[in-house]
Amino acid sequence: MSTQNIIPEVAHKPKPNPWVIVGRGVLQSFLVLLGIVVLYPLLWMALSGFKSNTEIFNSPFALPQNWSFSSYVDAWNNGVSQFVVSSLIVTAMSIVATVLISAWTAFGLTRTKIPGKPLLVGFVLGGMMLSPTVALVPLVRMMQSFGIYDTHWALILLYTAFRIPFTTFLIRAYMLDLPYDLDEAARMDGATEGQIFRKIILPLCQPIIVSCVILHVLFAWNEYLFAMIFTSSADTQTLPVGLTSLMSKHGTDFGQVFAAMTISALPIVIIFFLTQRYFIRGLTDGMGK
């Protein structure tokens, strides 16, 4: 049998089909176009941050005449630095809370014996359908009575609470695919449920957790409704709300507004480009192979 397999296969390439080449060319130019459509506005925004008001109005599509960072510096000093810090705090803390709670929930929903599990799954995932807008008024009362209205804690709590169902949904789908033999082997090795979670399941969920972190960053960094209603002072406001207040104060200085917007978008763009490969893999992995 093995001797037959050794007979070399004649490598013969099929003649290139002209239509295949044309098709590939069309597809590639389409993708390049799509890239331009997505990237150009970002670039335009960043470039406009270097221009003066007159330039922006008279020659909106030209390159800036002199590359002055003054608008960026002004924006940074006029509050953007504070908004960035607030956004970082709220995003980072709500990520940690959301991912840990969701992963632990998903672990319970997929890997333990609990009575009425389907009901519990429905209950947790049903949270995805809860509309934040409808819940606003009671939430305001709640935050006030907790005494955390107009603090970072209000946003951290809300972002965590409202993102847990979706994050749990993603992690649960991933965990369902991890073989249960692993848990059993660990149990034979003497591991407790907590140890199985921390040392076996959580490390194996790394791809989906990276995806969840990115999705959460996208959400928390851009969230506007809660941020607007639950924070009012400049040192608690996050970027989206802060930018609007900046616009109402310096709304005529468009260079500065563009600069502020560029600064706020930059972290997201960088994170996404650095992690995009991971991001897609995590989301598709959970769907089974």
Binding site: P179, D181, L182, E184, A185, A186, R187, M188, D189, G190, A191, I200
Partner: peptide, 16 residues
């Protein structure tokens, strides 16, 4: 399980 003094080799090996 861990206190029984019993080890098991799984069909799928179940290596971490």
């Amino acid at each position: 399980p861990a206190n029984r003094g019993i080890s098991m080799v799984f069909q799928s090996y179940a290596l971490y």
